[in-house]
């Protein structure tokens, strides 16, 4: 039969059971919650700064350790010249191309010697076999003359 509050017996029993419980103190205040939320968001930004700073430190250490040795600066004498532009006349037959090529070769060789040294000059290599065979002896010469 419902009581004066309109609760049935089952509900009355539940009310009585709930009445034996005492409310506990709250562990967090609103202010604390709001602060923690803000703090969490700043932690993420902080990590990004720390990451950048750490990367810069690593870069600094690597660059210092890999610094190249100072180099001796050798200044060669100036040769103020650029590549020759080309002359493009129409093709007309003319003679003596070989001579022109020889002069061109000379001009190039001269420039190469000044820029790269004498190794650009042709050199004969020592032959491991005697040049021209064994030298002529008097007997050889005598045989040669008597055979003609």
């Amino acid at each position: 039969m419902p009581n004066e509050n309109g609760l049935n017996p089952l509900e009355q029993e539940l009310e009585a059971a709930l009445g034996t419980l005492a409310p506990a103190q709250a562990g967090l205040s609103r202010d604390q919650i709001m602060f923690a939320a803000g703090q969490a968001s700043m932690r993420r930004r902080n990590r990004a700064w720390q990451g950048v700073s750490s990367a810069l430190v690593v870069l600094l250490l690597v660059s210092v350790s890999l610094r190249p040795d100072p180099t001796v600066i050798e200044v060669g004498p100036e040769v103020a010249r650029i590549d020759a532009p080309r002359v493009a006349p129409p093709s007309v037959t003319s003679g003596d191309d070989d001579r022109g090529q020889a002069f061109r070769q000379y001009v190039r060789t001269r420039r190469a010697v000044l820029e790269r040294g004498f190794d650009v000059l042709p050199a004969s290599k020592p032959t491991r076999t005697p040049v021209g065979g064994p030298p002529l002896t008097r007997e050889d010469l005598s045989d040669l003359l008597s055979s003609t």
């Binding site: 020759a84 002359v87 493009a88 006349p89 003319s94 061109r104």
Partner: peptide, 8 residues
């Protein structure tokens, strides 16, 4: 043309 051969 002949001079051109000097400059390649």
């Amino acid at each position: 043309k002949r001079a051109a051969t000097w400059v390649g």
